[in-house]
Amino acid sequence: MARQARVLRDQPGHPQALRQHLIDATQRLLAAHGVTGLTTRTIAHEAQVADGVLYNHFAGKDDLVVVAMVERFTELGRQFSAGCPKPGAQDLRTGLTVLVQQCRTFQADAFPMLAGLLGRPDLLHELFTRLHGAGGRTHPVVWSDIVDFVEAEQRLGTVSPDVSPDTIATVMFGASQMDALREPLTWGATHTGTEAVTADGGSQESVERLVDVLVRACRAD
């Protein structure tokens, strides 16, 4: 039988501590390996509990995976919002650069988890339903934060009124997703050690190229 995890020895009689412990263990496995190959047994082994324990707190493995992802995505959204630039507090290029870097950091964590669900449309649907709620907001917090920033800069006159904030969010979000996909595949072939690298593993040069495009698209001349 699996030995009792330390967090449970330290907090006996607290079922919520065990529930959160299972969520934390699942998040670690998702971050390291994604959904592929994730089983009840691997989760139990990571959490150092008996195989059947998770059924006391979740409907099954899929329910635990979705709960773990919702919690992680919610935290990533909070981190993104906290790091967003304030409209008018800096020049447009600096503000867009911060947004791009924030978006890349978000995608570096979020995209591998989402990619793992592409073969499970049922879980993907359940994830977005729980994140956004039935009839809730159309776009995730990250998307809305980008749109809000561009709209605020438009009101300040630094972004052209002809620019679509939603399109800017699409370009920034999509480019960051491509970077999250491309970086692990091309790292060994394209990085020589002389190129500046951002915290999420992407090159500073690619950030600047994207910002150049966004500034030209947004500028109010």
Rank of each mutant, 00 (worst) to 15 (best):
L22G: 00
A110R: 02
T138N: 02
D62H: 08
P87A: 12
L99M: 10
A59N: 10
D179P: 04
V66S: 02
R72I: 01
V66T: 04
I146R: 02
L185M: 15
A2M: 14
R9I: 13
L54W: 05
D62Q: 09
A44H: 08
H191E: 08
A180Y: 09
V53D: 06
D166Y: 11
I168Q: 05
L127Y: 00
E75K: 08
Q101P: 04
L92K: 01
Q177M: 14
H45C: 06
G133A: 04
E126I: 02
A44I: 09
S206P: 09
V163P: 03
L92R: 00
V159D: 02
L22Y: 08
R6E: 15
D63P: 04
M113A: 07
P140T: 07
L117Q: 01
L92N: 00
L156K: 06
T158H: 13
Q4C: 13
G83D: 12
G88E: 01
P161W: 11
F173I: 12
M1F: 13
G95K: 00
A17M: 14
T192G: 00
R137Y: 00
T39L: 05
G193V: 05
G133I: 05
G135A: 04
D10R: 15
G88D: 02
M178A: 15
D62I: 02
R130H: 04
F58I: 04
V35N: 05
R130L: 06
Q79G: 08
D145C: 08
G34S: 07
D91I: 01
Q20A: 10
Q11W: 13
M178Q: 13
R78H: 07
W143I: 05
V159F: 07
F128Y: 07
H57P: 07
A169C: 12
R104E: 12
A47D: 04
A17G: 12
R209D: 14
V147P: 06
R3I: 15
F73N: 03
G174Y: 11
A50V: 11
S203L: 13
R72N: 06
G116K: 02
G13Y: 11
M1L: 14
R72V: 00
D109A: 10
L29H: 01
I23N: 01
R219M: 12
T97K: 05
